[in-house]
Nucleic acid binder design. Structure first.
Lengths: 233, 233
DNA sequence: CTGTATCCGTGTTGATACTG
DNA sequence: CAGTATCAACACGGATACAG
């Protein structure tokens, strides 16, 4: 029955509501359940398949991922799309409104980067790294420069267009890139946030660098981490 | 034993971690449990006592509130302070870093205000209303005007200083206010977000208006709600 | 009067195994 | 590959009793 299915889906959003007119509370009604925001984070840079999501969210179980995707779909945040044959796979993607949630991740990330308990040595997903670049970009340092830096992370490529003190990141071929960094997410993160020298990472074979080396060196300095918060002063 | 207590508190932050270097994920480790962000929201405009919090968070139970406050304290977000006698009451307040979480509420609120499912007729706490003013202020409309509008909500007073296209809100006496709105949170919300005429609310006795009436009329038009999101376009 | 601790029914979460 | 089924553990919320 169609109506049964719809009823079930509406319930799937969340059984527990805050009963609060505050829009922030409503946001938590929609995406406040465990894992929901991280699922959305993984979709920010494009559609993903069920098992892609499982892979980038270590610790989530299949049934919980199913529930979250159903809930997010019912909330209008996520859309499920079946690719045309012969791919025949199903993918999940953010709706337009879902894509507007990006400032939430930036606000959360900017705030928690100052947490004394934050451990940057844990594993990082591709989406997390890219989102952190958008969040942590030092606008002043990047002001007045136009550049295109490519990132090859595993088998995906992303182009970072720097300009006007901001960075736009899209999944696309790297033909236009003036410099390209290639490697695992962890290696790129080590270069940008771990204070590791590009040359050392390159020598270890962890990172490949093509194109404008000076640009690459400059690029990795654009994303300073904020100072840790003190004892509640 | 002191060390036992500390151990207990560290565990109280959260038993379940995402094991993810992403700072946004770490934020959810810290404040992603049910009610945690709403407790913080209630503390944004000043210290509150345990039962104040219970009152403004309908639905939270005493034991859950205790757990959240312990967790937030262990995370360094909330500080517990005992007032000097004869008040002899305990209050909870945000630490400096905790206060920096305000952009999170704004991002959540700005996003969820566009949710098709958002119901603005539900009850609203004082902190929610004030936070929504900061979030929804139309900077263009407020640009180039300096004004001080007071809000008397129940037995608390708040001064809204408009200037430079922004609004700063603090809990303080209203001596400096050029106009003052008095009433229940719901009445002020009805005037600002519900499209209710000030005159009608005043006639009903729901709202008191003192001082510059034209300023009051202008003030309530400064906070437009965003359009609802469509069907995932 | 202000919080805290304990008990308990219920629902959510998460690990494993399994199916179309 | 994309989920479903099952079950154990735990978190939530309500009530109640307790402590300063």
């Amino acid at each position: 029955m169609q109506s049964e299915k719809i009823t079930k889906k509406v319930e799937a959003v969340s059984q527990r509501w805050y009963e609060d007119a505050c829009a922030a509370a409503h946001a938590l009604d929609l995406v406040g359940e465990r894992w929901a925001l991280l699922v959305m984070r993984e979709l920010v840079f494009g559609p993903r398949r069920f098992n892609d999501l499982r892979g980038s969210l270590p610790g989530i179980s299949a049934n919980v991922l199913t529930q979250r995707l159903e809930g997010l779909e019912a909330a209008g945040v996520v859309r499920r799309r079946r690719l045309a044959p012969p791919a025949a796979a199903q993918v999940y993607e953010l709706t337009e409104w879902g894509r507007e949630s990006e400032p939430i991740f930036m606000a959360l990330g900017r705030w928690a980067a100052r947490s004394p308990a934050h451990d940057p040595t844990l594993p990082l997903s591709t989406a997390s790294l890219l989102l952190s670049l958008r969040t942590m970009l030092d606008a002043e340092r990047a002001a007045g420069i136009e550049a295109r830096v490519g990132l090859r992370l595993g088998d995906e490529t992303f182009l970072c267009r720097l300009g006007g003190g901001a960075v736009a990141i899209t999944a696309e071929p790297l033909d236009e890139a003036e410099a390209v960094l290639s490697g695992l997410v962890a290696a790129v993160a080590a270069a940008i946030y771990g204070g590791r020298k590009l040359d050392a990472l390159q020598a270890e074979g962890a990172l490949g660098i093509e194109g404008d080396l000076a640009l690459a060196r400059w690029f990795v300095t654009l994303f300073p981490l904020p100072a840790k918060a003190g004892r509640g002063g």
